[in-house]
Amino acid sequence: MNAVITVTGKDSKGIIAKVSTVCTEYGANIVDITQSVLRDYFVMFMIADISELKVKLSEFVDVMNALADENSLKIQTMHEDIFNAMHRI
């Protein structure tokens, strides 16, 4: 069971570190990651295994949102099923 974490915002030092630290802390195991910086704009897609998440996914979403607010980023944490439903038959 995976979650897709999309992080966007103005580039700054240590974005990946901050997001992955929170993931580790809550038991989400990062299985794939891709990122790019376009001019000053940072975009990262992360797929994390959440089968051993220590809290409910909805609580993890709150934690990620708080992290986003603290760092002026936009973080969307979504269960992968929404992407599978939309893009796979």
């Binding site: 897709v4 969307q76 979504m78 992968e80 929404i82 992407f83």
Partner: peptide, 16 residues
């Protein structure tokens, strides 16, 4: 595996 294009499309549909 989910690809980046699919992720972007879904996120855009919801956000924009």
């Amino acid at each position: 595996m989910i690809n980046v294009g699919d992720i972007l499309e879904t996120v855009n549909m919801i956000s924009n």
